[in-house]
């Protein structure tokens, strides 16, 4: 059943979201983001199996490739930022980065 795969994806996404919101370690936050993206990827793949009247093609798969590329780029840039920040502030705690506090 496709809906089970979707439920699984939703669960991954929600757990990832919890990680993003509830953790203060930037590295773990970035990892949780990857988890959320994984959930999204599963949705793409699962939904590409739903018949929709025209001839079916795995377009969802192509999109997953794109997401993977974006994720790789994001992790590269994000980790670079983490390194730069750690270099200047000696911390990976996201709450120490409150430079926009009102």
């Amino acid at each position: 059943m496709i809906s089970y795969y979707l439920l699984f994806a939703a669960a991954l996404f929600s757990i990832g979201a919890y990680g993003v919101l509830a953790r203060r370690n930037v590295l773990i936050i970035l990892m949780s983001l990857e988890l959320m993206l994984n959930g999204v990827n599963i949705v793409f793949v699962a939904l590409s199996l739903v018949p929709h009247g025209v001839q079916m093609a795995p377009g969802g798969h192509v999109f997953v490739l794109m997401v993977m590329a974006v994720a790789a780029a994001e992790v590269a840039v994000g980790l670079a930022i983490v390194i730069a920040l750690f270099r200047t502030r000696q911390t990976v705690d996201i709450n120490d980065l409150q430079m926009m506090s009102g």
């Binding site: 496709i2 809906s3 739903v50």
Partner: peptide, 8 residues
């Protein structure tokens, strides 16, 4: 969505 996940 309540259909088997079967490849065409």
């Amino acid at each position: 969505l309540a259909i088997p996940a079967k490849a065409p």
